[in-house]
Amino acid sequence: MKQFVQILVFLAFVLGFSQGTEKFQRANALYQQGKYQEAIDAYKSILDAGQESVSLYYNLGNAHYKLSNVGPSIYYYEKGLELAPNDEDIKNNLVFAQNATIDAIDSIPEGFVSSMLRKITSLFTFDGWAWVSVACMILFVILFILYYTANLSSRKRLFFVGSWVVFLIGIFGVFFAFSQYNSVQNNQFAIIFAQETTIKSEPNLRSEDVFQLHEGTKVKVTETVNNWKKIRLTDGKIGWIPSEDLREL
């Protein structure tokens, strides 16, 4: 009975994957025909079914960009980069989309050490760094066994040094994995979807206007109060925005 249930689960998974692939191909066909809104609807139906992929987010971003939907295009490119931080196609298209935004926001200069750590950490996702650590630990054990079984002193030195090198890489992998995890947990970003929105000093409409933002701008969300989000810009400015004017990544 248990095997029968497992077979049913497997068949349901295969069927769902097959249907998702067919929907994706139909959506791509609509995109190629220039029916961008229909393609967007088809791509979103795949997301609504609980499936996601780098290609899906990339194509959604492209379709929105074709319709000059700056906010959604940036949003979906950013979602794609969450799954594939080093995808050059997404990075390039994201730059094009960002060039279409109105707001020009300066960034607070970042120190050399923190900048290098951020770049190294962003090479892989949290799962990617975790797998690097696991692979290094396995390789460390193999090299250490080879060290003990080797007869030649030159090979012993090679295996000994190699084992400790991969061990250290594995330790750094764990560090970068937790850094990536903490970065995701503590840095909740969002994209402005409203064409224009006024940022308030407090989470209510009666408070003072602080500044304005426009569609496509990326902000950091630091707090939520009812239907308001407290945001911080890269230049250090802070304020409150209605929740419906942005979409969190």
Rank of each mutant, 00 (worst) to 15 (best):
N93G: 03
S207N: 08
R247W: 05
N226F: 08
Y148M: 12
D127L: 14
V95M: 06
L152F: 00
P72K: 00
S107C: 07
E88N: 01
D209Y: 05
T217Q: 03
V184N: 10
F167Y: 13
L246K: 01
P109V: 05
I90L: 12
K66W: 06
L249M: 15
L123K: 13
F176C: 02
R155S: 14
W228C: 03
A100N: 00
G173I: 03
L67S: 11
F144D: 03
E202Y: 08
S122N: 13
K79A: 13
D89N: 13
A130F: 10
I142D: 10
T121N: 12
Q33C: 14
V221C: 05
G50D: 06
L8G: 12
M1T: 15
S18Y: 08
R206G: 13
G128K: 05
V225A: 04
Q3C: 13
A63M: 08
V174A: 03
K156M: 10
G162E: 04
V95G: 04
E78G: 14
W164P: 03
I142Q: 07
G61V: 05
A84H: 09
M1E: 06
A130G: 09
E22D: 03
A84S: 15
I241L: 10
K79E: 14
G111K: 02
I171R: 09
I74A: 00
P242S: 07
F96M: 09
I238S: 08
L233S: 04
L30I: 11
V225P: 07
L56E: 05
I46R: 03
W129G: 07
N99G: 04
Y147S: 06
L15G: 01
R232N: 09
N28R: 13
Y57P: 00
D89F: 02
L152P: 02
G236F: 08
L123H: 15
S133N: 09
T149H: 06
D209T: 09
F24W: 00
V141P: 06
K230A: 01
L83W: 09
D127W: 15
A97L: 04
L123T: 15
Q188S: 13
Q185K: 12
T149I: 05
G111D: 06
I238Q: 01
L30T: 11
